[in-house]
Nucleic acid binder design. Structure first.
Lengths: 128, 128
DNA sequence: ATCTATTTTTAGAATCATTCTAATTTTTCA
DNA sequence: TGAAAAATTAGAATGATTCTAAAAATAGAT
């Protein structure tokens, strides 16, 4: 594994956020591990193919990268923010229900995050 | 509702496939209901906002549009083909498991479709 | 160490579905 | 009939991501 790849993996694994390629690129520069954005994309693809990271795609937002520990995601409909959630035995339940062999699944639960809820209350008032 | 919007809605509701904006555009032209691609996109957005159609986004493929009857999707990892599947009471089960209020959910189950499985057997052999 | 071969990185162009802009046409209904 | 609103249009713009081809770094073999 390349130094760049290792750094990128570290950044992802040490982050509690869900980082975009751009954000990872910026964090790399902070570490003086200068690399161009294309390199970040290259490494992210490789890491993804190797199953070392997860990619979270939400319509309207750039892809975000995440550790591989099994978990699902809440997506805020207002700001796009991702939060982790773990649903026990979902994979098994799904596999049981669909007859065909499942490779994997991708579940996103839409909600409004607490920040956005607060904002709504604050100035939103009753916009009905 | 506009004539274009009505046609587009019809096309989607009468199709068993999962059509892209481009495909819908082509079908419109067949009906002599000529409209430009931007118009198709405009109408699709409106229909989507009104909750009259569903949008299915899969990474690497253009968005596809679908009827709103509640169902989930199988996605072929090889060719991207979508198939419908209905998982009973999933919404309720999910809502019960995640404490926060759920707006909706989006589940995609990855698998290999029968066509691609057949192709693999045919010339794939044991590429291991 | 030294010389290939392979891999990685780079800069910058290209892609392409989708959105935007501003102008034009169509529809609405007073 | 005419003014305001809505829908359509052509074409440019967007923007995240991928591609290209060249340069740099790394690894393996002698």
């Amino acid at each position: 594994m390349t130094k760049n790849a290792r750094y990128i993996l570290e950044i992802i694994n040490n982050s509690t956020e869900h980082l975009t390629a751009e954000q990872i690129y910026l964090r790399l520069r902070e570490k003086n591990a200068k690399a161009v954005l294309a390199t970040v994309y290259n490494n992210l693809s490789t890491l993804y193919e190797q199953g070392l990271i997860q990619k979270v795609c939400v319509e309207g937002y750039p892809d975000r990268y995440d550790k591989t520990v099994r978990h699902d995601h809440l997506v805020c409909k207002k700001c796009g923010k991702l939060s982790d959630i773990t649903l026990e035995d979902l994979a098994e339940k799904l596999q049981k229900q669909i007859g065909v062999p499942m490779i994997s699944y991708d579940l996103k639960i839409n909600h409004i995050c607490t920040e956005c809820l607060a904002k709504e209350k604050e100035h939103g008032g009753d916009k009905s």
